[in-house]
Amino acid sequence: MATKAVCVLKGDGPVQGIINFEQKESNGPVKVWGSIKGLTEGLHGFHVHEFGDNTAGCTSAGPHFNPLSRKHGGPKDEERHVGDLGNVTADKDGVADVSIEDSVISLSGDHCIIGRTLVVHEKADDLGKGGNEESTKTGNAGSRLACGVIGIAQ
């Protein structure tokens, strides 16, 4: 089992970053940390998408990683996509320092995120509470600013 993974985020604009993942036990939580720069100040949706395909930019990554066919939600919700990591918060300089621990994603097994795409979005994720159909699919997080395929790390 891989215990570490990394993702280099890039987009068409100024947004870029490096996100690290570490899972010490196969059924334990995954620590997610790193930094994203070039964002507007505020909240930005942060999700693992189904495919590791960036051939047409971030759009070819498909929908959120959702092997259990659930509705979109927040990272602490029972009803959520596996890939729903909530929001990252950018400061006035456009930098989001990421520090998350998640017990639904994994670096092995059915919820493995390796080979899938991590995406940072234009807007805040409403965590499935926006009151419309799009909220239950995407959290109304808007366009995909930057993305990268999650790969095994040393």
Rank of each mutant, 00 (worst) to 15 (best):
A141S: 12
V149Q: 06
K137L: 14
D126R: 04
G148M: 00
G28D: 07
V6P: 04
I100F: 12
A124H: 12
R80H: 05
T117R: 08
A5R: 01
D12R: 13
K37P: 03
G45T: 03
D93E: 09
V8E: 11
G86M: 04
R80M: 06
K71H: 04
W33D: 08
G13C: 12
P75G: 07
S99R: 09
L68V: 07
H64Y: 07
F65T: 08
D77R: 08
D53P: 12
I113A: 01
P29M: 07
H111K: 15
T89Y: 15
L127S: 10
P63S: 15
S69F: 14
A124W: 14
D77E: 10
F51S: 15
D102M: 02
H72Y: 05
L107G: 01
G128T: 03
T89Q: 04
D12N: 06
G94T: 02
N132K: 07
T136F: 15
A141E: 05
A61Y: 15
V120F: 08
K92W: 07
G34F: 00
D110T: 08
H72I: 00
R144C: 10
V15S: 06
E50G: 08
C112G: 11
F46L: 10
S143R: 13
H121C: 11
N132M: 06
I36A: 01
L9Y: 02
P75M: 08
V82F: 11
K129S: 10
L39V: 04
G74R: 07
G42K: 02
G94L: 02
L85F: 05
G130A: 12
E22M: 10
S135G: 07
H64P: 05
G11Q: 04
S35F: 15
L145H: 04
G73D: 08
T59A: 15
E101K: 11
G151C: 14
F21A: 03
L85H: 02
V48N: 00
N140T: 11
K76N: 14
C58E: 15
P75F: 11
G34E: 03
I100W: 08
R80P: 04
L118Y: 01
R144T: 11
G11R: 04
G151A: 12
G38L: 04
T136W: 05
V32K: 02
K37F: 13
G73V: 11
C112V: 02
S143L: 15
A146N: 01
A141L: 09
T117P: 04
N140S: 07
A61R: 11
A5V: 00
V32L: 11
E133F: 08
A5F: 02
I114R: 01
E134Q: 11
A90V: 08
G131M: 15
V119I: 09
I36W: 00
G62T: 05
S135C: 07
V8H: 13
K129N: 10
G13D: 11
G57A: 08
P67A: 06
W33P: 05
P63T: 12
S103V: 05
G109P: 01
Q16I: 07
G42E: 00
E25W: 02
G17E: 03
I19M: 07
A153V: 10
P14V: 14
N66S: 08
K10G: 13
V48H: 02
E79Y: 15
E134L: 04
T40C: 15
L118F: 03
S108W: 12
D77H: 08
P29Y: 03
F65C: 10
N132D: 12
N20C: 07
I150Q: 00
K37N: 11
V8N: 07
V104T: 13
